[in-house]
Design a binder for these strands. Sequence first.
RNA 1: GCCUCAAUAGCUCAGACGGUUAGAGCGACGGACUGUUAAUCCGCAGGUCGUGGGUUCGAUUCCCUCUUGAGGCGCCA
Length: 466
Amino acid sequence: MQQISIKYLLTSKPEIGKSVTIKGWVRSRRDSKAGMSFITVSDGSCFDTIQVIAETNLPNYNEEVIRLTKDCAIIVDGVIVESPGSGQAIEIKVNTLKVLGWVENPDTYPVSPKRHTVEYLREVAHLRVRTNLIASIARVRNSVSYLIHEFLNKNGFYWIHTPIITTSDCEGGCDLFKVTSLDLQNLPKNEQGKIDYRQDFFGTETFLTGSGQLNVEAYCMGLSKVYTFGPTFRAENSNTTRHLAEFWMVEPEIAFADLMDDAALAQEMLKYIFKNVLERNSDDMHFFAEFINKNAISRLEQVVNTDFTMLTYTEAIDKLLKSGKSFENKVEWGIDLSSEHERWLCEEMVGAPTIVTNYPKDIKAFYMRQNDDGKTVAAMDILAPGIGEIIGGSQREERYDLLVKRMNELNMDKEHLSWYLDLRRFGTVPHAGFGLGLDRVVSYVTGVQNIRETSPFPRTSKNANF
RNA sequence: GCCUCAAUAGCUCAGACGGUUAGAGCGACGGACUGUUAAUCCGCAGGUCGUGGGUUCGAUUCCCUCUUGAGGCGCCA
């Protein structure tokens, strides 16, 4: 008797007549007058299920087998037999079937054996992994995470655990969640009547990180190739299919590198992820191609096999102006590209991932390297069809004087970031990096439109359930 | 944060120009049939019509508030 996963059972081509034990959840039960019930069992190890044959002469057939409903947990001891039915090569003939966990009230069980909308399933996020869709997404998400680590480690990168709690309120602009141990009902005030953070746990105002970039830059200036990969938090009240308040982001940073090196790394990494997900999760990907987006596989293959199109911001504006399309938002040099512009560029003009470089400095972050034209910075965004911005990156400003000048222009607090400026004073080198949103990649890979499906327990405005 | 739409059975939806007993499909349950596989066929149960207020003889239906959800925009990954 050997306990094995269904994945192993289906891929290892076990010999007929072998005894096995499987543990899993009932997907469906069909009773036959031929003297048996057909029970489909899933253990989540792979997309496919195994069919279990429970004959009516089992001692607990009338008491238990006949009462099995979706998601009852069972242990089956049985023998592998060739399946006379069509639809599967092998099946398990039951010797003993033990029920570990019944489903109470199958009539109101939230994940009944029928089609459910993704919106409904979000309301039962603790149970939704028992659907094909969410289970496949979970397996793909795991693969993508693993492949990111694998790709970067194979290429000599070190994973740096940058802090979750930070004092820098983001790179400028975005809202962060405050971290405090102060009594919110009775906040201490300073001489100016403002909250006295000197009495807070850290003696200063702190936040959940919105990006590990600044910290990982520090480690880059000693380890050359590094990345941070972990949860990131933004308190922006975004209500879209591609924003979460808590999301995972990988941010590689490379020393002795410029924007072109950065773009090349980003492209290589995306291709590595897509190519290997297609292999590792072939069964899940076929499910997405059948039920979610019929191009789910072909478009990934296309990305793997074609060079990304690269154009400058100025060229992009030019293309948009000459597109003959009327956009809701006005197109002129200096604007930030809006979703409709990005969509037109990568979906209609190019039809594949597109890298836009050298944005106007006024719409980008302070740390981006200023180009010689005095107007633009060495930034890049990678736009993906159906999702928009999937990667944002830049070459960082490594020249101390220019960085200070820029921070002054933006009225930034240099005191707070003096450690960051130190990096430019002590052995500075050209360096570059980018941020890739894990949840967005999974959305792109699976073809699942809403990022609230690609995160197991999504946190959004007004929703931190589960 | 702004704009638009929605909320009726466990789920997906229909419906009433405001008036006795609010319908269907799926699921669940019972039965028939069958090496079945999104099985098929027959039957049964299941609803204070999101919350609070207003108009009215009467509101699930009309109006307003709130809550929640969805989509679009902005912010970005």
